[in-house]
Design a protein around this nucleic acid. Structure first.
Lengths: 226, 226
DNA sequence: CCTATCGAATTGTTGAACAATCGTACAAGC
DNA sequence: GCTTGTACGATTGTTCAACAATTCGATAGG
C-alpha cells in the first residue's frame, strides 16, 4: 500500500484534539501505520503531502522523521528523502543476534518470577491458531517474547526489545507472509515456559536459542526467495 | 590501482567530511563536551546562546537535542528547557541492571574469541594506575567492558552499551570523584578475562555479575552521600 | 508569612524563503 | 549503441522571523 492510499485515513485521525510534543505525536501516528503494514517497506514518505495531512509543519514532521530513523523504522537517504526501512538479510541476522542475547539472558538471570502474562500470551496464540487468525498468532507470539524480556524489569532492555520487535514486523511485511509460519512455534513457547517454571533456567535459555535459530533460518530462507 | 579498489576508501572519507545531517553533527559536538565533563550534569542548555556558538539555527539545534534526549544524555522538560541529565539513584540501578545482562550474556554466549582488545585495555588500565592517572584508569576500564560486549558482534547491543557507558560518565561527573574508585577493579577484570579464556564462561559471567554488583553498591553509597 | 496576579523570558510551533542536491530528459560525441 | 555533458523541475536541507504557550520571579495585597 502506498502513501497516497492511506492519506485520507491519516487525515481523519489527525483532526482530533491538541497534543503536547507534536513531533512525538506525529512520529507515533506514522509508527502505527508502519507497524500495521499500511505503509509497506520501501514506501517513500514525502514531506509535503504528509505535512498537509497531519496538520503539522515541515520542521515538526522532520523531528518525527528523526525519531523514527533512530528506531530504524525509516531510513533517511540524504537529499533523496525518507523511506520505510526495507530490512536486509544482514538486518535479519542482527535482529536475531539481539533477540538471542536478550531473551536467553532474561530467562537465565531474571529476578521476576511473574509469568502470568506469558501464560496469557500462549493462550491467546492458541485461540488465534484455532480461529485461523494469522495476525492474532503473530501478535500473541510477539507478546510472549516481549514478556520474556519484561522479566528483566529493565526499561532500557524492554525498549530495545520493543524496537527489535518493530523491526520484526517490518521483516514480515517485506516478504510474502506464510500463513503457517507462526503455528509450529506456539507449542515451543509453551515448552520453554514450562522448563523455565520448573526451575531449569539454563535449559529454558538453550531451548530459546534453538527456537530463535530455527526461526531466523526460516526467515532468511524466505527472504532470499523474495 | 583500479577504480574498484579505491571506491570503499573514497566512500569512507566522504561520510566523514561532509556535514550533511548538521543536526547529528551538533549532537556529537554537545555529546563530546558532556562526556568530557565540560558541561556538568544539571547544566541548562539554553537554545539561544548555543545556536550562536555552534552556528546553527534553533531548528537544527532542536534536532540535536532530540538525538541526545533519546540517548538519555540530556533531559527535556517541556516549556522549561533542556538540561544535562543528572542521574538519579534509580538511574544507577537501571544502568547496572542493563550492564549485568549485557556483559554476562556476552561472556556466556559470545561467538567471537578475539580478546586482544581486552588484554590491551587491561594493560592500559595498569599503566594509568602506575601513573596515577584517574581519567586514564576510567577510560581504560570502560574500554574493557565495552570490549566484552563487542564480543557479541552485534551493532545494536554495542550501541546500547556505548549509551550506558555514556550515562556512566554522567554518574561519575555528578558526584565527587573518588581517586581510588577504579584501582581495585583492574585486577578483577584480569581475573574475569583469564577465567573466560580458560573456557569457563559460566564462571566468568558469575564473576562479572559479582563485580558489577559491588561497583553498583559503591556508587549508590557515594550517590546517597552527595 | 502566605497567596494571587502580572510581566519578562524562554520554549514550542509554524510558515516562508533560499541553497543544495537529485532524477530525468535530451542533445552531442565516440 | 553506449557513454558523456547539460539544462530543468522537483524535493530535501537549513535558516530565519514571527507568534502562541508556558514558566519563573517579583511585586502587591491579605
Amino acid at each position: 500500500m502506498t502513501l497516497d492510499e492511506i492519506l485520507p485515513d491519516l487525515r481523519r485521525q489527525s483532526v482530533d484534539a491538541r497534543h503536547t510534543e507534536t513531533g512525538l505525536w506525529a512520529a507515533s501516528m506514522l509508527r502505527d501505520r508502519i507497524s500495521a503494514g499500511q505503509l509497506a517497506p520501501g514506501a517513500k514518505l514525502s514531506e509535503e503531502p504528509l505535512c498537509e495531512v497531519l496538520g503539522v509543519s515541515r520542521n515538526t514532521l522532520r523531528e518525527a522523521f528523526a525519531t523514527l530513523a533512530r528506531e530504524h523504522v525509516v531510513t533517511r537517504i540524504p537529499n533523496r528523502g525518507v523511506f520505510v526501512t526495507r530490512p536486509t538479510a544482514d538486518d535479519i541476522r542482527e535482529i536475531y543476534r539481539v533477540r538471542r542475547f536478550l531473551e536467553s539472558a532474561a530467562l537465565t538471570w531474571s529476578t521476576s518470577p511473574r509469568t502470568d502474562a506469558l501464560h496469557a500470551a500462549i493462550a491467546r496464540a492458541r485461540a488465534a491458531r484455532d480461529n485461523g487468525s494469522v495476525p492474532g498468532m503473530a501478535s500473541a507470539n510477539q507478546d510472549f517474547h516481549a514478556g520474556v524480556v519484561a522479566l528483566t524489569r529493565s526499561d532500557r532492555l524492554n525498549a530495545q526489545m520493543m524496537q527489535v520487535l518493530a523491526e520484526m514486523r517490518l521483516v514480515f511485511h517485506s516478504m510474502v507472509a506464510n500463513p503457517l509460519f507462526h503455528a509450529p512455534y506456539i507449542d515451543d513457547n509453551a515448552v520453554i515456559l514450562d522448563t523455565f517454571e520448573a526451575g531449569d533456567r539454563q535449559a529454558a535459555a538453550a531451548l530459546m536459542v534453538d527456537y530463535l535459530r530455527r526461526a531466523e533460518e526460516q526467515l532468511l530462507e524466505a527472504h532470499s526467495r523474495a
